[in-house]
């Protein structure tokens, strides 16, 4: 009885340690996003600070300086240092669950968070070259009904979002995975979205660099300054110059 009790306590302690370690995992990265459409390109640069519990701080540097904080519940804040204003909103679409760095940090890279977004795995199969293809579907109306996720060595390399007719709405390519680091992560993500009406496409290229699992940076625990002026909704902030 004593042995069983001792083993149970040890197992429980190890489980708690593992859970705690997961929650304490931290990763940060420089991100450069270039969006290309109609022969024109815009650039956004930022550094993301992500924790295993879903807390995500993003420090934008270009084209404007501002910082956002969010979590898995979509409790979102946007702070503009130049005007000392903070915009707060609770909306799942603003949550950190879709952030790629979080998905890999939390070990959800095998489904890229699709299960959490309401998708259901319909089937999976291997092709001749060893790629594992998984098909997910959903009945939710505000998103693509079908998603095809392709993995190589259990790492996602390709995602295709399909409409009801099976036509491709957009494709995402994940490549140039980091090697030999504590966090295996794709440093290059390319998304191509097709616009059938315009017979054109938009390309978004995201480059991750300076990836670090050192959690000592104070930005991980960034808090909006206490004296920040709340902007209850964007309209209030927009009326001010």
């Amino acid at each position: 009885m004593a042995v069983v009790l001792r083993r149970s306590l040890i197992s429980a302690a190890l489980l708690l340690l593992a859970l705690g370690a997961s929650a304490q995992r931290r990763a940060s990265a420089d991100v450069e996003i270039k969006s290309l459409a109609d022969g024109k390109v815009t650039t956004v640069t930022k550094r993301v600070f992500c924790q295993g519990n879903g807390r995500l701080v993003t420090v934008f540097s270009s084209p404007y300086d501002y910082t956002t904080i969010t979590n898995l519940k979509g409790e979102f804040k946007l702070y503009v240092p130049s005007s000392n204003e903070v915009f707060s909103r609770v909306d799942q679409s603003f949550g950190s669950g879709n952030e790629l760095l979080y998905l890999f940090l939390a070990g959800r890279q095998d489904n890229l968070g699709l299960l959490g977004m309401g998708y259901t795995l319909q089937g999976s199969s291997y092709d001749e070259e060893g790629f594992l293809k998984r098909t997910y579907t959903t009945k939710k109306k505000d998103t693509a009904p079908t998603v095809e996720l392709v993995l190589k060595d259990y790492l996602p390399v390709y995602v295709a979002y399909l409409d009801h007719s099976g036509n491709v709405l957009s494709k995402v390519y994940l490549s140039q995975y980091t090697k030999g680091s504590r966090l295996v992560f794709p440093t290059r993500v390319t998304e191509i979205t097709y616009n059938k009406e315009k017979h054109d496409s938009t390309v978004v290229r995201t480059i991750y660099s300076s990836i670090s699992t050192d959690g000592s940076d104070p930005n991980f625990d960034y808090q909006v300054p206490a004296g920040a002026k709340p902007a209850g909704n964007p309209l209030d902030a927009l009326k001010k110059k």
Partner: peptide
Amino acid sequence: AIDAAIENAIDVN
């Protein structure tokens, strides 16, 4: 091809 397209595009920034 993607990098070339980005490089040759007009930088709105």
